[in-house]
Design a protein around this nucleic acid. Structure first.
Lengths: 214, 214
DNA sequence: CATCAGTACTAGTCGGTCTAGTACTGCAAT
DNA sequence: ATTGCAGTACTAGACCGACTAGTACTGATG
């Protein structure tokens, strides 16, 4: 029956999603044909349509399954922003992590894809925004609130502070990644330098070091 | 021949670009057919192909002609950041202006379109980024440099400061606009409140008010 | 008479359906 | 356990209707 606890059906479905993910990412939504996905998944078109009613549905599943990976970062946030870690430069470490993770080539391409189809499939973009974007922001803000209460930060408006953290960190590199084509690896070291400088500025604003509040 | 100094040919070309702009913006690149553009421009397909070799070329022209409008904002930047204006809250005014201008519905859609096709037409995205994005950033940075030299700001790294300005201001609302579909006007008042709060934070970081430097 | 609208045409793509036949799977009877 | 069987999932490929970029031609018009 199943060697590793995975039915044939489930195996096929996974293959399809994998092939679809790769193809959508490299060729875009309209540029990808169901035929191509079928070939790449070593599956017949019919099988695809047995598992997914639609091209649109399939794409949605691709996005959702990739978005699930965002959980990892959220956990890192809470981890690195515990009071002890924070005082050991956890925020700088988090900054570097966020930059390198979110600017990963595949993730950027997926991001482009979702934005491109935000009109056609509104629920997708909304999901991505709420489950990924806002969730991370909220996690960050609640950490900031706690740290402020502990006297380790002075973030009057923690939500605003969280948005500033990401904005200062990501505005430039993210826009560059979105607009410039694929051919720009942008050295990791360079990214981390920008991250460090931005975190430093952020701490000058919201951190405790140089004295007086408000 | 020409009533108002515009040849028939030029008039047609303008009509085509106008129609193309509207259609591309509302239906995307693949979703727009040349036929539709021709109809909307009250022109035959043949005429389009007389003026533009390609669908891709036409799209490029659309983007470039729209990007030209970015000049206005750049001028506003230098205007509002003269030393006198700056001391009268010019930065806050600029913040509100930037937010409302850049989050204009049509501009957001165009932005989506360019991002969507950043792979297919790399030169387009690059142009948009360099002629629009980087240019505004550079203008801003040079203003910050001048203001710092005059003792009105303390922006050690003016380029970084400029990127922080835009990032703090736009990260949240821009991402929201990009990911959530069209149905999100996001009240202007709300946007301006966010802008004000962000500019205030920015000035707490880079401004002169509360004393000591670095 | 050059330019254009209108239209028909080429050549091709794609999403999705349908069909006929094959492989796999779980269950039951031996 | 082994075998037999029914039901289900799968493959391969033909097929349909709709649509598209781009070209070719004709007759009107300014």
């Amino acid at each position: 029956m199943n060697i590793d606890g995975e039915t044939r059906s489930a195996r096929k479905e996974r293959d399809i999603i994998q092939a679809a993910t790769a193809t959508f990412i490299s060729k875009g939504y309209d540029g990808t044909s169901m035929e191509e996905i079928a070939t790449k998944a070593a599956v017949s078109k019919q099988t695809i349509y047995k598992h997914f009613t639609d091209k649109e549905t399939l794409f949605g599943e691709v996005v959702r399954s990739t978005a699930a990976g965002a959980n990892d970062i959220v956990e890192s946030v809470t981890g690195l922003l515990s009071d002890t870690k924070f005082q050991q430069g956890g925020l700088a470490e988090l900054g570097r992590l966020v930059v390198t993770t979110l600017l990963d080539d595949e993730l950027v391409k997926l991001r482009r894809l979702i934005i491109a189809n935000a009109d056609r499939m509104p629920s997708l973009g909304r999901d991505w925004y709420e489950k990924g974007f806002e969730r991370m922001l909220a996690t960050m803000a609640s950490c900031f609130r706690k740290l402020s209460a502990q006297g380790l930060m002075r973030a009057g408006d923690a939500d605003l502070a969280a948005s500033h953290f990401f904005g200062m960190l990501l505005w430039i590199p993210m826009n560059e990644a979105m607009f410039k084509g694929n051919g720009h690896p942008r050295a990791r070291a360079e990214l981390e330098r920008h991250a460090d400088a931005s975190v430093e500025a952020f701490l000058a604003l919201y951190g405790m070091k140089s004295g007086h509040a408000r």
